[in-house]
Nucleic acid binder design. Structure first.
Lengths: 353, 353
DNA sequence: GTGTTTCGTTGAAAGGTTTCATCAATAAAA
DNA sequence: TTTTATTGATGAAACCTTTCAACGAAACAC
């Protein structure tokens, strides 16, 4: 609508100085301009309600103070906490986030294209954990575009990567059950068979396996089931798991579930089956979202530092952008902590002793 | 890093045509350029891997195809579903989202400033539901900046607004309990006393009140408690509620809780107090997040169409931007639906009959 | 064959900023 | 007093597009 936008030129005219002078005070090149003119300029800026045009600035500086956050799907429970961390440090550093959803590799490519056209200064990828090469990321790297990847499985370790220690989580969770005296431990795994493969699910599963093998234990295949993350999916997986147990002599006394949302669904299934947790079945899971302490029974779970992951990724990215030179490629692997609540039965055992 | 960016000029030179010609094929002004040159140009574009600079384009078109999404806090449970809806239509229309978090009015103002400097084409506000005027929004309106507000309480009804029917939700939820035969109905309200006031909480509370009054019923103040949204906050509020009941002769048989996360916390408190839901206390709540069906007992709740709210807001905004003229100001109020599950006891009653 | 449209193409201006090179004036050094 | 630095300020180029006005050539109408 025909509203005249006011520019640096107007400010300069009104203040009786050169455009470049105004630009200098705007950019805080303080030494370079006398206090009397500076004050006058600032006054005029306020008076005219002048707002510098970041687009025009970007044209010449070739920087937008904007980073693209590419995310697999908004519903991903990691999204909010990770973005929280990302936003926290990005905001502090004066960067903006532009959001793009990309649930498969093709839309990811196209998101990259449009955001590059928008001249974003860098990318953070937080999509599904693809296992396979992702040549488009390689290309990005070759072209010198700053980017960091969160929680994916990449075969190129020249790429900056922030990962949660899902293997460790699976291992430690199972170990916890072993320490409580359980020897027969099944698992409800995440999407370990999906294509593309999801790293987090596979690693948690392998952690479970590893802990058992270390003790020379082996779980029959009937004790294993897998499914997508999610409440309903967990419910269904648990029902399938229970069904499978009918075909095997020994029933597990404990269960490692790959994800808290699945666990909530599973608890429902166990309730309908009149299976008491933890008395009949001890459960340990992974994630520790806010609701974990409020289920019945409360979830014993491995808390993953997702906010910290977001922060770490953002910090690496900002460093790279500012230095304008790729950092020594690093794989940050963030640890976890065990939150002992009720589903594992640890507190009950202590009470009995 | 000194990588030469390739521009429309390079394409023009390589293809042996004028810059403007390239621009025309880029922008699909199809009639205007001969097929032979067009093909050559497209070929060169591919060859050179040319990517038009959206920033430069924005300079001249004065449009960025970008809208600012200003949100109170990422943790807000509405954020994900609303953004889902927003993103869905914005993406389809070729717009990008740039995200800004602003938890108070000052940071909201500054977010607006920086995003306007970034030349966003419009705004969607999805912050806390302030009650008070928000002059900065008025200013925005006067300056002709397109924007839509989701779920706030504004005294200016010239502003485009998408609201969830929180009043109706409170009313209908309570009505449901009344229909089940309850006459003594308390409430755990949301932050109705907070400053600035949160519309959703106040409306849900008023809906509860209204339904009771309609039946000539009155709840003693001991049956009422309020708190912030959240699991732990719900737990605490419920404990306080239980404590207050000690000081009153009659105990409620039913309870309206303003929010599902609070309800989950409250259920925990009731469990420790050996209060059976729904037998001793029927519960109805509001929101219907994914976990609502998986608590024990499952939550009877009023499902709010948050994704639809996001979509509606985005559609209004895009219409405004494209028409370059403010639409007839509208207040969209989206309805809700009652999800009868277990906490209200309805299924039990039916079974008894 | 002349006059008028239409078509395909072009050059140049405009958009708002940063920054480089330059310059005048003043301060410091010789 | 002359020379050299320093300071404060400036004009103009550059960033990469889009789009307007203009133009020659071909097609059409008469």
């Amino acid at each position: 609508m025909g509203r005249k936008t006011i520019t640096i030129r107007d400010v300069a005219r009104e203040a009786g100085v050169a455009v470049s002078t105004v630009s200098y005070v705007l950019n805080g090149k303080d030494g370079a301009v006398g206090t009397v003119k500076r004050d006058r300029i600032l006054e005029v800026i306020r008076e005219l309600n002048y707002r510098p045009n970041a687009i025009a600035r970007s044209m010449v500086t070739r920087a937008t103070a904007t980073v693209g956050l590419i995310i697999g799907e908004l519903k991903n429970p990691l999204f909010v906490p990770v973005t929280e961390g990302v936003q926290e440090v990005l905001h502090k550093e004066g960067y903006h986030i532009v959001l793009a959803e990309a649930s498969d590799i093709e839309s990811e490519k196209s998101a990259i294209e449009t955001l590059r056209a928008q001249q974003v200064d860098g990318f953070i990828f937080m999509s599904l954990s693809y296992h396979y090469p992702s040549e488009h990321l390689m290309k990005l790297k070759e072209e010198g575009v700053p980017f960091v990847v969160i929680n994916r499985d990449l075969d190129d370790n020249e790429i900056n990567l922030v990962q949660l220690d899902d293997l460790g989580a699976g291992y430690t969770g199972t170990k916890h059950l072993l320490k409580l005296g359980h020897r027969k431990i099944g698992t409800i795994a995440g999407p370990i068979h999906s294509q593309p493969r999801r790293r987090s699910a596979v690693e948690r599963f392998e952690g479970w396996q590893q802990a058992l093998h270390e003790q020379g234990l082996e779980a029959p295949s009937e004790w294993i089931v897998s499914g997508e993350y999610g409440f309903e999916q967990g419910y269904q997986a648990a029902r399938q798991w229970l069904a499978q147990l009918e075909y095997v002599a020994e029933r597990p006394t404990a269960l490692f579930i790959a994800d808290d949302t699945m666990a909530v669904g599973a608890l429902k299934a166990f309730r309908s089956a009149r299976l008491r947790v933890p008395d009949d079945l001890a459960v340990v899971t992974v994630g520790d979202p806010p609701f974990a302490a409020y289920t019945d029974p409360a979830l014993t779970t491995l808390s993953l530092p997702v906010v910290a992951a977001g922060r770490a990724a953002a910090r690496i990215l900002v460093g790279w952008i500012k230095a304008d030179t790729p950092p020594r490629p690093q794989k940050v692997r963030l640890s976890f902590s065990l939150q002992v609540r009720e589903t594992c039965g640890a507190n009950k055992i202590i009470r009995i002793e």
